[in-house]
Amino acid sequence: MNLDQLEGKFNEAKGKLKQKYAKLTDDDLKYSEGKFDEMLGKLQEKTGQTKEQLKEEIDKL
């Protein structure tokens, strides 16, 4: 899955991620175009998962 596809899928997955990781806030999940990797870094800090694990999880949602 390329980055564009992952970004599109992420928009659908936000609610499910918030349910699974209760400590995530709307600000954590805020996406600015061109800053997807930066946002993944924030999610990585909050969840303890690697960026690759997060990408795989988003792909599955």
Rank of each mutant, 00 (worst) to 15 (best):
M1K: 11
N2F: 04
N2C: 05
N2A: 08
L3K: 14
L3S: 12
L3H: 03
D4I: 03
Q5W: 11
Q5P: 03
Q5D: 15
Q5A: 15
L6H: 05
E7Y: 02
G8A: 15
G8Q: 15
K9V: 03
K9Y: 01
K9H: 02
F10I: 00
F10C: 09
F10E: 01
F10D: 00
F10Q: 02
N11C: 04
N11R: 01
N11T: 05
E12W: 03
E12I: 02
A13D: 01
A13R: 00
A13H: 05
K14M: 00
K14V: 05
K14S: 00
K16F: 02
K16C: 01
L17G: 10
L17I: 10
L17D: 09
L17K: 07
L17V: 04
K18F: 00
K18I: 09
K18V: 03
K20Q: 14
K20M: 13
K20H: 06
K20L: 11
Y21I: 06
Y21E: 05
A22Y: 07
A22K: 11
K23S: 14
K23C: 07
K23H: 10
L24G: 04
T25R: 08
D26G: 09
D26F: 01
D26Y: 00
D27V: 14
D27P: 08
D28A: 00
L29P: 02
L29S: 00
L29W: 04
K30E: 14
Y31I: 01
Y31E: 02
S32A: 14
S32H: 13
S32D: 14
S32G: 08
E33Q: 13
E33K: 13
E33Y: 10
G34T: 08
G34L: 06
G34S: 09
G34H: 11
G34N: 12
K35R: 05
K35L: 02
F36M: 07
F36W: 09
F36S: 02
F36I: 04
F36N: 04
D37H: 08
D37R: 05
E38W: 10
E38Q: 15
M39G: 12
M39D: 04
L40F: 01
G41N: 14
G41I: 11
G41Q: 15
G41E: 15
K42L: 14
K42D: 14
K42R: 15
K42N: 13
L43D: 11
Q44P: 02
Q44M: 13
E45C: 04
E45L: 04
K46P: 08
K46N: 08
T47R: 11
T47G: 12
T47M: 12
G48N: 09
G48P: 04
Q49P: 08
Q49C: 00
Q49H: 10
Q49Y: 07
T50F: 12
T50K: 12
T50D: 12
T50N: 07
K51A: 04
K51G: 01
K51W: 06
E52Y: 05
E52R: 09
Q53E: 15
Q53I: 00
Q53M: 07
Q53A: 13
L54Y: 05
L54S: 07
L54F: 03
K55M: 03
K55Y: 06
E56W: 03
E57P: 07
E57D: 15
E57G: 08
I58E: 02
I58S: 01
I58L: 06
D59Y: 09
D59M: 11
K60Q: 07
L61F: 13
L61G: 10
